[in-house]
Nucleic acid binder design. Sequence first.
DNA 1: CTGAAAGCGCTTACAG
DNA 2: CTGAAAGCGCTTACAG
Lengths: 344, 344
Amino acid sequence: MQPPHQRKRSTGRVTLSDVARVAGVSPITVSRALRGERSVDPALVKRVTLASAELGYVPDPAARALASHRSNHVAILIPLLSNALFVDLLDAAQRTLKASGFQTLIGVTHYDQAQEEQLLREQLLHRPAGLLITGLEHNAATRDLMAQSQVPCVHLMDLPQRPDTDTPYCVGFRQTDAGAAMTRRLLARGRRRIAFAGAQLDPRVMQRLYGWRLALQEEGLYDLNLEWLNPAASSLALGASMFEQILGQSPPVDAIFFCNDDLAQGALLAALRLGIPVPERIAISGFNDLTGSDQMFPALTTVRTPRAKIGEAAATMLVGLIRGEAQPQPLIDLGFEIVEREST
Amino acid sequence: MQPPHQRKRSTGRVTLSDVARVAGVSPITVSRALRGERSVDPALVKRVTLASAELGYVPDPAARALASHRSNHVAILIPLLSNALFVDLLDAAQRTLKASGFQTLIGVTHYDQAQEEQLLREQLLHRPAGLLITGLEHNAATRDLMAQSQVPCVHLMDLPQRPDTDTPYCVGFRQTDAGAAMTRRLLARGRRRIAFAGAQLDPRVMQRLYGWRLALQEEGLYDLNLEWLNPAASSLALGASMFEQILGQSPPVDAIFFCNDDLAQGALLAALRLGIPVPERIAISGFNDLTGSDQMFPALTTVRTPRAKIGEAAATMLVGLIRGEAQPQPLIDLGFEIVEREST
DNA sequence: CTGAAAGCGCTTACAG
DNA sequence: CTGAAAGCGCTTACAG
C-alpha cells in the first residue's frame, strides 16, 4: 500500500533527496558538496560523495537550469558547416567543452548578421553557461543581447586592431599580418604582379586583403586591377574559374594569393587541365592549410592557421570565465605559420 | 514598496501566468493552447495567442523539460566531424530540426562503440526528445539504453539486410548494392582486375566491400589479393600511398575502387606525380562524390550518395515520431547514383 | 472543454 | 559551516 499522492509522479530517478537521506544530511548540503562549493565540512563532502556514488546519482540538468538560471550548455555560433575551417573549430571546442562537462549547442549563421541575431535569441532561451562566437563584427541587437544576457563570451578567429580597455575576450590571430606575411614571401621570391583572389568577402578575408595591399604598397607594386573579389562562397570550382580569369589579364600576373585553400586547390587543378606550369608561369598560394593542400601537385604553399588550437584555447578560456576565474589576458594571439611548398 | 517575499527571485521573465492573467484564463489553459493541444475552445486559443504575442512570451525550455520529462533537444551521434560526409548529414539534420523548433546536441563517437555508449548516457540525461544515430551496429548497453529510454530514434545511413517486424526506423541506402553497382560498371567498361581499397573499415565500408566481392564473383573474377584493407582513417595521403602499393602488384590491377572519395582523390594526385596515365593505365573510382571530385584531373568517377537528403528525411521522420504520428514505413531507401566521369 | 493542486528536482536567499 | 523554506516555470494527473 502506498500512501496517497506519495509516488504520484515519481520517475524512479535518484534525486538529491535520496542522496541526502543516505548521507544523513540535508539536500542543500548535498547540492553544495557535489558542486564543490567550499564552506562544506570535508567530512560531510566525503559522506555525500560516497552516498552519491553508491546510489549512482546524476544531477538533472533541467532542474538545475530552472533553479539556477544557468544550464550546462555552451552555444557556439559559426558561419558555415561546409567550410572545414569552422568544422575544425567546432570539433576542438566541442571536445574541450565536453571534457569540462558542457554540452555544445551549434548555431550556423550563414555569414548573415540577422540570422546570427535570431540564433542568439533562441540560444539564450536555453540560458547557456557560455557563448563562443565567430568574429568581432555583429549587429547592434546581437551586441545588446550579449551584453544584457551577461553570458560569458569568447570571440573566435579575429583579434581587434587596437586593444583597449573594452577589449572583448578573443582567441585568434592577426589576419592582416598573415595576409601581409604571405605577400612579402611572394615578393621575396621575386614575384612582382601578385593578384589577390578573394571569395565570400567576410571580415577575415577583407583583413587578409588589407595585409596584401599593405605589403604591395610598401614596394610600390600595388595595383587596383590586381584585386579579384567575388562574394560567392569559396569552392574548388570558383577557384578554377577565378584562376582562368586572372590568367587572361595583361600585363600578366605572376602570382595569385588565394584567400582560402579550396580556391587555390581549384586553381592548381585548373592549371593542370590547362597545361599551365605552376610555379614557373605563375605562382599560387592559399590560406589555412586545409586537408589535401600538401597532396596537391604541385603541393600548395599556404598559411597554416591554428584553428584547432583556437577552438581549444577559446573553450578553455570560456570555461574559466564561467567558473569566475580571472583571465590573465582577454586576448590570445595564437599566430600563424607560412608553409612554403612547391606552388610558389 | 513591495510585499515581502513577493519578488524574491523574480527574473523579470514573462511567464505562463502572466499570459494567463492577460488572457483571463488559467495557466494550464495557456499551456494547452500554446502547445496546440486540441480540446481547447478555439476562442480561448485565440485570446491566449494574442496575449502571448502581446507580452512576447517564450516558454522556458528548462521548466518545460523538468515538468514533462522531455526537452526540445535532439541528440545526434556521428562517428567523426573530420569526414565531410557526416558534416553534411549533421548540417541537413540540424537545419531541419531547427525549423521544427528543436536544438541539436552533437556527439562524436570516433567509431568507438564504448564512446558511443558513454555519449548516449550523457545525452539521455538531457531527456532528448529524439535521437539520430549513425549506423545499425551498436553494443548491447547502447541498445538497452535506447530501448529503456523510450526516446524515439532514427538510424542514419544504413539499411538492414532483411527487414522484419523488429526493423528500427532508418533512412539511408543499400551500401552493398552501391558497391556492387560501381563494380559492375567497371566490369562493363572492360576492366578485369579490379582492386578494392578500403580504409577505416567501418560497417558501411565493409558492406561496399561485400558488394564488390559479389559482383566480381558473379564474373568469376574475384581474387583475395585484390582486397586492400587498411584500418587507418581515410585521407588523401593514405589514398596516395595505397595507390602506389596497389600499382606495384602483379598480375597488374587495371582498376581501383576506393571506398571513399578522399582516398581516390589522393590516388589521382599521386598518379599525376608519378606520371601514371588515368584511366589508360589504371581506372580509379571513388565513393560519395565529395567536394572536389568533379574538379580533379581527370575528374573522378564515383557514387553519389544522398547524405543531405538522408539527414533531412531522418530528421523529418524523427519529428513525426516525436509528435506521435504514425510513420508510413520504418525504412526509407534514398538510393544512390553512379556518376561516370573521366577517371574510369 | 477547463481548472485547482501538486509536483518535476534542483538552487537561491535567509537565518542561525 | 548547515538547514528549512520558498521558488524557478512549466506540465501531469485528477476532477468536474
